[in-house]
Design a protein around this nucleic acid. Structure first.
Length: 417
RNA sequence: CGGGGCGUGGCUCAGUUUGGUUUAGAGCGCUUGGUUUGGGACCAAGAGGUCGUGCGUUCAAGUCGCACCGCCCCGACCA
């Protein structure tokens, strides 16, 4: 992709609207733009990052036998009245009446819809277990949206739902999803902790949150500095100490990126979803639900992967794998080589952004560091003098001067091992 | 919803305290021409503004008053 043909509006200075590091960098690197409080447009680079995260999620869930669906955001309020969550959720749910007088809402989550869907399908224990998931836009009228994509009113969530015939099955599904989450977050380059949590309006008895320690996180957790055991922070509870190490837990800000719940039969009983067990008895299906704040992962990743110059994307997340900086676009030799390099990389499916803008070297270096694309190739004076081009690793700032073929070989080694 | 901050060109901001040398400025960005090209280049010429909105006070409002709108932060709340 040629930068000159791209919509990548970078900003030299941080816009007034942003205070947290991730929010600033997302705006400066041209990932998103604000439409109104808590509502953002994704620009090409932001969308690419989002797509990369979604790909990882799909791979890890599909591998474990989960089925992807896509449920409507538009829902009848009636379903929510049946489960009683109509009142529980309260004003967070966006409601309205359509021209036919139907009372509708925009889904803040999808337990009701998925349960209703499964109701007409499920007959026998032979159909269980089953796990369904979707990656979809959720709507929540938040009291206070903040920190850019961290708490938005319209955001993208991966929500999965498991259906089992007994508690033992639920435990298996729960562990399976737990493992999937660990793989997903690791591939996203995240340092994260798991804490036991309060199920809240979702219901059920057991739930775990996946937390990313981050300076600008809006949640607070307690972490053992030695063994990393962690738990939720509650102001009214006395200062806890680590049961294993005996030392005091430390308060840490964190971003909640995932939350998994053992729901039990809350929804299946309210919406009457049952199956016939091996003994021929009708039994309510046992459910679990599993959420990942997909769009929220972007700021979480940035909070953990940046320096004073900009973002440093982990390998699988990087919107492009390589950025080529042609330092003098008026020089024929430099441009010829840059175009050839660009084509060769793209022909081998290595996504490459070619900075072909007529800008000074300084501007290109600054923008490349800001964008955080993992590998930078510099074509400039060195090429004219010795025929060498420079490969730079964004994260380590390591520089390698070599001939084009060797640089390509190195890139392949870095990307594919 | 309570508390605080902010709103002046695409971005960052000065000017508001004490109304009148302001026909509203600067830097960045943008356009044109020229010189440049290894860490946000330089010269020259240019374009771009309902000073968030409305009402009011006044001879005179970016500046004072009232109301409203929007954004950010803290709190309550929250998957």
């Amino acid at each position: 992709m040629l930068w000159s043909r791209s919509f990548i509006p970078t900003l030299k200075e941080s816009p007034q609207e942003a205070e947290t590091i991730s929010h600033r960098l997302m705006l400066r690197a041209g990932l998103v733009r604000l439409l109104m409080a808590g509502v953002y447009s994704y620009l090409p680079l932001g969308l690419k990052v989002l797509t990369n995260i979604e790909r990882i999620i799909r791979e890890e869930l599909d591998k474990r036998g989960a089925n992807e669906v896509l449920l409507p955001a538009l829902q009848p309020q009636e379903l929510w009245i049946k489960t009683g969550r109509d009142k529980e959720i309260g004003e967070v749910m966006i409601r309205f009446v359509d021209r036919r007088g139907r009372r509708l809402c925009l889904g803040p989550t999808h337990e009701e819809v998925i349960t209703d869907l499964v109701k007409n399908y499920l007959n026998s224990y032979k159909q269980l277990p089953i796990i369904l998931y979707q990656i979809q836009t959720k709507f929540r009228d938040e009291i206070r949206p903040r920190f850019g994509l961290v708490r938005a009113c319209e955001f993208i969530m991966k929500d999965a739902y498991s259906f089992d015939q007994d508690e033992e099955g639920l435990e298996k599904s729960y562990q399976l999803m737990h493992q999937a989450y660990v793989s997903i977050f690791r591939r996203c380059g995240l340092d994260f902790l798991t804490v036991e949590a309060d199920p809240g309006v979702m219901g059920g008895k057991v739930s775990h949150e996946f937390m990313v320690p981050a300076k600008d996180g809006e949640d607070v957790i307690l972490v053992c500095p030695r063994c990393k055991l962690s738990r939720g922070y509650q102001e009214d509870k006395p200062q806890q100490s680590c049961p294993k190490c005996g030392i005091n837990l430390e308060k840490n800000n964190a971003i909640e990126i995932g939350h998994i719940f053992k729901l039990g039969t809350k929804y299946s009983q309210a919406l009457e979803v049952s199956f016939i067990d091996p003994q021929g008895r009708q039994r309510p299906v046992i459910m679990g639900c599993y959420g990942i704040g997909v769009s929220r992962l972007i700021p979480a990743i940035i909070e953990q992967h940046h320096d004073s110059e900009g973002i440093i994307w982990p390998k699988e997340i990087s919107p492009y794998k390589v950025i080529i900086l042609a330092l003098d676009v008026m020089d024929k030799k430099i441009m010829e080589l840059s175009f050839r390099l660009h084509k060769e990389l793209e022909d081998t499916s290595i996504e490459t952004l070619f900075d072909d803008r007529n800008e000074s070297a300084g501007v290109k270096f600054k923008d490349a560091d800001l964008l955080g694309i993992m590998l930078q190739i510099v074509v400039g004076k060195e090429y004219l003098k010795n025929g060498n081009i420079e490969l730079r690793i964004r994260e380590t700032k390591e520089k390698i001067l070599e001939k084009k073929e060797n640089v390509i070989a190195r890139i392949k080694k870095i990307l594919y091992g």
